[in-house]
Design a protein around this nucleic acid. Structure first.
Length: 763
DNA sequence: GTTGAGCGTT
């Protein structure tokens, strides 16, 4: 039985309880994990009042004769001025020096600070991690206004490691802490070990529990599917190193610990430099050696094997095909939409997706199996909307039905895996259908199917050597490998592979582009790449710094820009809300996806409610909510709301008749949030008001389920007068439908409207 | 009234 020993760094410091080993000794490594640089222990003998040293033998500290007792023990650190011989001096100095360099603190940059955060607040925040020697908020010299970043320095290295190992919510914003670029990476000692010969019954918890006795374990990663190895990351690199080469017995199984440095393997697989630079400890364990040598090096070859092409070639389920003759109306509608204003074209581009479209697949609430005529009113609604709808995460049953009906061989075989598949479906779904590219109906390139994402920072375009690149810049990169390009049901060998490049210092030392990952085309592999414990977080984490996708030239002889319209503003705040939801309301479970809708404001700023110049009510394909519901929205905003609303139509309660499906989707938008939504519902009879009432009703339902209303109506949102809290939106759900939360926001200064929402499955 | 990728007038 392990007992705990109270150890303090020095007299007057608060003791930390450290676990002893089964034989009653205390491992020096355990001690060093908490007190880096410690070489021994001492304590005050209660009888003699003298300081006594603790016996140290082969890395184990032995208890005093009468046991550790309740004494407080104090750390002993090497002292250079007490050497007895030159020889000793030299050795010890060298050791100390090495220790010092290894444990040396560097300044850390804090990025993403709220404008309002003061140095004092910064200091106070980080003092909970250890003694802060310096805290600075960089400010504009003229105005005194914060520049949104700052620096801190800790007194001890442990604090530094701890701080860098996580993100920080400071005054409502998620901030990153990094070693500044201006400073060379101080040291890179691997904290992670490879544990080979694992058996399947050894769980991550088992590993954590076992290895914790050597020092603090910060991460355990077991690749899935099972591959007989795992990774264990220690806080203290010394401990990791010390364990390397050893055999250990866990659950009657002898496992072998070795260095976790299959770098060549990384490179072969396209996972370059994932955790090699920057002095940043690995976070989340995402960089494990992945399973499945599918595909090849990214610069050549295509995806091997995988799913076959869908049944029924020549007809694609996206446009009126699929499922044995889908609704022709859909194709017509698309045509009509594309013939509309540029606005609508943009809309179309944003709404294209490569999931099978439920409607074109003939999946509606009342759809008979087999062929469809495309005359259902839901289909018509969608046609009016002019939007393809399949991109959103959807419930399993619907997906299964859709896929089955579509005869998508690739996924059919995986029906049993659908929950997994669904869980992996797009975090962000943008861009054209791959199918439509193959068939030459669009010049747009494929897009990231999904990725775990939180704070993408910007996206832009770069053209060089005749190749357009879509660059999506994100704040972080560690979950790079969770990118998944959905080629399900398609012949992947026909597609070019995505090339992911990163400029993040966490992945690249030089901040220049480097290839870091291939697109992962296998959902299972994606899952394997997400450390289980990080799912609730990484599902909200962005990690790609930039992305470049090229088509194979023989298939698509041209490369063109992909109009992407990622939500771009103040995602962070929303994200923090989402995170809260994930952690509390959702219990960390089943946060399924996120979908962003946004777009440029055509012509002028969206202030003042002026609709875009090309917004012809007769032509537009979107449903315009009543002004009463959108008292302060611009035309653009209304369009955005409508777009969201329309895009959610397929998720309308499928138990309802298809003709009423549209009305089961509500967009509630008010200037005063909840109360006005309900007020409107009681006062009027038009459809929209009913929807508002329904929306409110469902929000109430959410609240009853334990969701906090603030997640639906974040009125505390710090933003412009036109922003999100002015236009909260509630959407309905049914027992089998996803729950939707989303937020709309306009960014008039950027002439851009931004709408973001996330989807939570209620289970 | 507003802003959000970065790298520090020590």
């Amino acid at each position: 039985m392990a007992s705990y020993i109270q150890v303090a760094e020095d007299d007057g410091e608060e003791p930390i309880e450290l676990p002893s080993e089964d034989d009653g000794t205390l491992l020096l490594s355990t001690l060093a994990a908490q007190f880096p640089g410690t070489c021994g222990l001492k304590f005050r003998n209660p009888e003699t009042k003298a300081i006594r040293g603790v016996r140290l033998c082969e890395g184990r500290l032995h208890p005093p004769e009468d046991g550790w007792g309740q004494n407080v023990y104090y750390c002993v650190f090497p002292k250079e001025n007490k050497r007895k011989s030159d020889d000793h001096l030299e050795n010890s100095t060298a050791k100390t020096k090495r220790m010092e360099t290894k444990m040396k603190c560097s300044d850390l940059i804090i990025l993403g600070l709220p404008w309002k955060t003061s140095e004092q607040q910064l200091r106070e925040y980080f003092e909970s991690f250890g003694e802060v020697l310096m805290a600075q908020v960089k400010k504009d010299s003229k105005t005194g206004q914060s520049k949104g970043f700052g620096f801190i320095r800790f007194a001890n290295h442990e604090s530094q490691i701890r701080v860098m190992a996580q993100r920080h919510l400071i005054d409502g914003r998620w901030c990153d802490v990094k070693v500044p670029n201006s400073k060379g990476a101080p040291q890179q000692v691997p904290c992670k070990v490879f544990v080979g010969r694992c058996t399947e019954d050894i769980s991550a918890d088992d590993l954590r529990e076992y290895f914790s006795k050597y020092g603090e374990v910060t991460d355990v990663f077991i690749p899935k599917p099972f591959r007989a190895f795992a990774f264990v990351t220690f806080l203290d690199p010394d401990i990791a190193q010390a364990l390397c080469g050893e055999d250990h017995i866990i659950k009657q199984t002898s496992v072998h610990v070795s260095e976790a440095s299959p770098k060549s393997d990384y490179q072969q697989r396209g996972y370059l430099n994932q955790q090699q630079t920057g002095g940043v400890p690995p976070r989340g364990g995402s960089g494990g050696v992945g399973p499945g040598a599918r595909g090849g090096p990214m610069d050549k070859g295509g995806y091997g094997g995988g799913y076959g092409p869908p049944a029924g070639n020549g007809v694609h389920p996206f446009h009126g095909g699929g499922g044995g003759g889908g609704p022709g109306g859909s194709g017509n509608n698309m045509g009509g939409m594309n013939g509309g204003s540029p606005w609508n074209q943009g809309n179309a581009a944003r709404s294209s997706i490569d999931m099978p479209n439920l409607q074109t697949l003939g999946i509606t609430g009342q759809a008979p199996p087999g062929g469809q005529t495309g005359t259902g009113s839901l289909t018509n609604s969608l046609a009016l909307a002019g939007i393809n709808l399949g991109a959103l995460p959807m419930n399993h049953a619907l997906v299964a039905a859709a896929l089955n009906q579509a005869g998508w061989g690739g996924l059919i075989g995986q029906t049993a895996e659908l929950p997994l598949q669904v869980r992996l479906v797009p975090f962000s779904s943008r861009g054209p259908s791959i199918r439509s590219i193959l068939e030459g109906r669009t010049s747009e390139l494929p897009y990231i199917r999904w990725f775990s994402c939180e704070d993408y920072a910007a996206c832009d375009w770069e053209k060089s050597n005749g190749i357009s690149k879509k660059r999506i810049r994100f704040k972080r990169t560690e979950e790079l490998l969770t990118v998944h390009h959905n080629f399900n049901g398609l012949d992947k060998s026909k597609f070019a592979q995505g090339v992911f490049r990163t400029a993040s210092p966490e992945v690249c030392s030089d901040r220049q582009f480097r290839t870091t990952a291939r697109i992962i085309d296998d959902p299972e592999e994606c899952v394997a790449r997400i450390p289980p414990r990080s799912i609730p977080q990484t599902i909200a984490c962005v990690d790609i710094y930039s992305l470049e996708i090229r088509m194979q030239p023989d298939l698509v002889p041209r490369t063109e820009k992909i109009p992407i319209h990622f939500a771009q503003k103040d995602i962070t705040h929303n994200t923090s809300i989402f995170r809260e939801v994930e952690r509390s309301a959702c219990g960390g479970e089943e946060v399924v996806g996120c979908y962003g809708i946004g777009g440029r404001v055509a012509g002028g700023a969206s202030r003042g409610g002026a609709p875009p110049p090309d917004d012809d009510p007769a032509k537009r394909s979107w449903h315009q909510p009543s002004k009463a519901l959108l008292p302060r929205s611009s035309g653009y905003h209304q369009k955005a709301l409508a777009e969201i609303r329309n895009s959610l139509l397929p998720f309308a309660n499928s138990g309802e008749g298809s003709s009423s499906a549209a009305s089961t989707i509500s967009t509630v938008s008010t200037t005063s949030g909840v109360s006005s939504a309900s007020g409107l519902s009681s006062a009027s009879t038009n459809g929209l008001d009913k929807e508002a009432a329904l929306g409110r009703q469902n929000v109430n339902h959410l609240v009853n389920m334990g969701y906090s209303e603030k997640f639906c109506f974040p009125r505390s949102y710090r933003a412009s007068p036109l922003s999100v809290e002015k236009h909260p939106i509630g959407l309905p759900f049914s027992g089998t439908s996803p729950i939707f939360f989303f937020f709309c926001q306009e960014a008039p200064h950027h002439r851009q409207a931004v709408n973001v929402f996330r989807i939570y499955y209620a289970r």
